[in-house]
Simulated scan of single mutants.
Amino acid sequence: MTRRPWYRIPIVAAAIAVLAGCQVGGAPVSEREGYFTWVDEQGQVRYSPIPEKTSDGARDSEAGSAAAPEDSSGQEEPATPPALQPEEEYTLENYPDAEQLARDGYVRPGERRPYFTWRDAEGNIRVSYYTPDTRTDIQKGRVQPPVEITPASIHQPGAAPVPETPVEGYDPDAMAILGVEEEASFFSQFAGSCCQNLSTRDRHSWISGREFEVDISDASERHDFATGTSPFALVALPDARQYPDFVFRLRSFARDGLFVPSLAFLDEELRPVRVVTDMAMGFEPESWHSRAYLQAWIPAFPARGERWMVIFTRAQDLDGQTVLETGQGPQSIPHVSTGELGLELVVED
């Protein structure tokens, strides 16, 4: 019978003891209940017991702070003080402000900020905290906001509508009985002086795919509209087969004042089809890359017979001014009869 050397017996016994110690509880530490796994700043995998809840619902602060991840500077973020724990019930005194909560990425006071792990140039795993970006795709500029048509006064042919419920004592024949002629509608007055005698020699062709310039200057042709004499620009609309209807942006740039436009849409014979006035145009102040300008979004309907567009200004608009609130107080910009305009067709997806 061969006997093993006596000096090997302690080594074998020690190995068996180590293996038995690793299997205490019947499973590795990483698989036991009550433990969680995390990575320290040196990239070493650690195991920490999940802290037990106390009678007031808070977990053991000592165990919780031991598992707190570190930031990119290597300094451990302190554990959340009990006073900053999220409130379970809100009152008028502690109710969070919605706008401030959104700016904080919807991380409430006392809650740990979200973080991500990364590996530095030396191979160490780091942890960096961040505030979630809660802006919408429109606010981030990834998606264009939906186009909103600018409110305006629309004048079209036809009798003025009669209210469905006239006032008491209303008589539709009263004006005729008294021999008083009814005042013609704005559209009929405008059409009486426009626009079949306009010259198309200096017309502007529509340019699709980009914004193009339309300049109304002292050298532009003038016409006696029903709203007053004004220089004007005549623009040919896109072909109805390509664009049966569309929306375009009109910008009027400040140049020694602001040109406040009104529009008349004409048919092939240069007869008015629709007149747009009193547009509630938005004002964009001057910036490092653009002059100040008025802006409007306007629909056009070539499929309904609109072939031309006349841009002009009214006498009553020339009497007004645009007033702005600035850091130095109110600032007024006069309205003028000439200006530089930008037109751009909007193609919606």
Rank of each mutant, 00 (worst) to 15 (best):
V12Y: 00
I154K: 01
R103Y: 01
F246N: 13
T229K: 14
D215Y: 11
Y90F: 15
G329R: 01
A236G: 05
G342F: 05
Q156M: 14
D104K: 08
E221A: 15
P78E: 03
D215F: 12
P28K: 06
D60A: 12
T54C: 01
E284R: 15
T313M: 10
D71S: 14
E122L: 12
G305K: 01
A176Y: 00
W308S: 02
F36N: 07
G34L: 07
I298P: 05
A160F: 08
A63D: 12
Q156I: 15
E211G: 15
L324D: 10
F246T: 14
P81H: 03
M1Q: 09
A152Q: 10
S290Y: 01
D104F: 02
I333V: 11
P244Q: 04
I154P: 00
A315R: 11
V235G: 06
V39N: 12
E211A: 15
I11D: 11
T165E: 14
Q144P: 08
E181K: 14
S72H: 10
I333G: 05
R274F: 05
I311N: 00
T80C: 09
A102W: 08
E33D: 09
A160C: 08
G228Y: 02
P231S: 09
I154R: 05
S205Q: 10
V107M: 01
P81L: 06
I216S: 04
P272I: 00
G34P: 07
L266M: 09
D97C: 03
C194N: 09
I125W: 13
F232A: 02
I16V: 13
R103D: 01
Q189K: 15
I216G: 04
L198H: 07
I9C: 04
G21Q: 12
S290R: 10
G34C: 10
A226M: 02
A152R: 09
G228E: 08
C195Q: 06
D97M: 00
A264K: 05
R203V: 07
L237K: 07
E164T: 02
V147R: 09
I311S: 00
E52W: 04
L92M: 07
S188K: 12
D173E: 15
E181M: 06
Y243A: 09
W297G: 04
V18T: 05
G327W: 00
G320S: 14
W6M: 11
R112F: 04
Q44P: 02
M1C: 06
Q144N: 14
E340L: 13
T117P: 00
M281C: 06
R291W: 03
P5G: 13
